[in-house]
Nucleic acid binder design. Structure first.
Lengths: 244, 244
DNA sequence: GTGACTTTGTGCGCGTATTCACAAAGGCTT
DNA sequence: AAGCCTTTGTGAATACGCGCACAAAGTCAC
């Protein structure tokens, strides 16, 4: 298996669904690595990652042929290959904007530093927070946003501000040259095509769970306490749902 | 349009992909509601939610025919219908286990209370945290987990503990009768079939961004600083990747 | 060196999701 | 009241993702 063949195999397209699972495999693999496991079969790794083994093998096949038939995969080598594919063999410079509870949690999250993400700055608009020391970093004023981004070469911005401030902050980081945004604010951000945005929404996941929980209990059109058409259009007895 | 027809249309299966988007539509709609908008077209709402308008219409059609041709959808009525479908017209009792930075952020998250999620308890194993008052709630010791779940009728558990503690906590909440788990710990939880688990992983999202960021820069097999086979198997120059 | 055994890599069929494009439906104007 | 205009709801086509099942490939025992 030559380098040429690997490159051809990887082509220019790893399916998004596969990319989203690679970090999960990576986590399972580092766990095995810590326990001193040198080799793992697709069956074992799939179980550890919570996926089907055929899916795992197909996912890995998109990176190239890194297994040995009859044996399995060498853990250390696979860790390296996945890391390289995900871009974790290089450092990524991150800025966290919004140092509330969530921003603080993110600043101290071990999973960042261990995977090549370096937090270059914490920024907030609140004067009473600016200057505070958090995990060895001093919170800077949001006015310095452009300086921090340019000065440290920030390429990924993490937005953990209130919803109302998010789009404004997003516009500024994009204008300053950031090309990837991780958004924790509960709003849909508008960005130019060349900028990637991913969103993590704490309450959406909970709402999806509520849906399934309700289904277990009989569903809204089934055995639930309320049935359709009990509050017909015109009657204003709707649930009050205010945003965060 | 009768109640019977609505019920038939909704059948027993709303696609998962649709369920996952309903909270996004709901958020966009409540935003419009606050701005006093009474009616919205699929085109406008789709733009606000960041999706294709045909997809939006098909999603909504799974709930029933709630639009008016030539006009659009009545915002208030649609908010009610989506809320009902998601199960947000009833209260869900939630316990948060693990009151570190993240647990604190979750406890104070406005998006919970406003959508029918009532936090009935904050629990932690750390004696120095137990007894602290957070957003009006007193942190209880993890030993009281079963009491809190049974006493308040908790049906959803939010796990925000360190990775090592997560599976143990999960087993306990499931044994105590919880049927939905929202997991923030970076581990794959094992649960019985009838229990739903959803996972939110802060660092996975960042890794996916890194992948795309690398692609923009040329990719690992393209113009990047390193090429395949520069570190062949056997040479141990792999990146060290330790878990959080 | 040979044969039995294990495990990978993948072709294939199936179900789900997405998007296009348009007929049906309703409102509005004159 | 008639016709025009807007917008929904959905059939049809396409793309995507998943998992089975198996041939190919490699190891290991003897």
């Amino acid at each position: 298996m030559t380098s040429r063949q690997n490159r051809d195999r990887a082509e220019r397209g790893i399916p998004e669904a596969t990319v989203a699972r690679l970090p999960v495999y990576l986590r399972a693999l580092t766990g095995l690595q810590e326990r001193g496991v040198a080799t793992v079969s697709s069956e074992e790794l799939a179980a550890a990652a919570g996926v089907n083994s055929a899916k795992l093998r197909k996912d890995l096949s998109h990176l190239g042929s890194y297994g040995t038939r009859g044996v399995g995969y060498e853990v250390e080598y696979l860790v390296y290959q996945i890391s390289r594919e995900l871009g974790l063999t290089q450092d990524w410079v991150v800025a966290i904007i919004g140092v509330g509870n969530l921003g603080r949690a993110l600043a101290g999250y071990g999973g960042f530093a261990s995977r090549g993400f370096r937090v270059a700055g914490l920024l907030d608009a609140d004067e009473s927070i600016v200057g505070q020391e958090i995990y060895g970093m001093t919170v800077e004023h949001i006015d310095r946003l452009e300086d921090v981004i340019a000065g440290h070469g920030v390429s990924i911005a993490v937005i953990a501000t209130p919803a109302a401030a998010a789009q404004g902050v997003c516009d500024r980081v994009v204008a300053a040259g950031v090309t990837s945004v991780l958004n924790f604010a509960p709003v849909v951000l508008t960005v130019p095509d060349e900028v990637d945005v991913r969103k993590v929404d704490l309450s959406i996941e909970l709402q999806i769970l509520a849906f399934h929980e309700q289904r277990k209990a009989g569903g809204p059109d089934g055995l639930g306490p309320l049935d359709a058409d009990e509050t017909p259009p015109g009657t204003t007895q709707y649930v009050e749902a205010v945003d965060a």
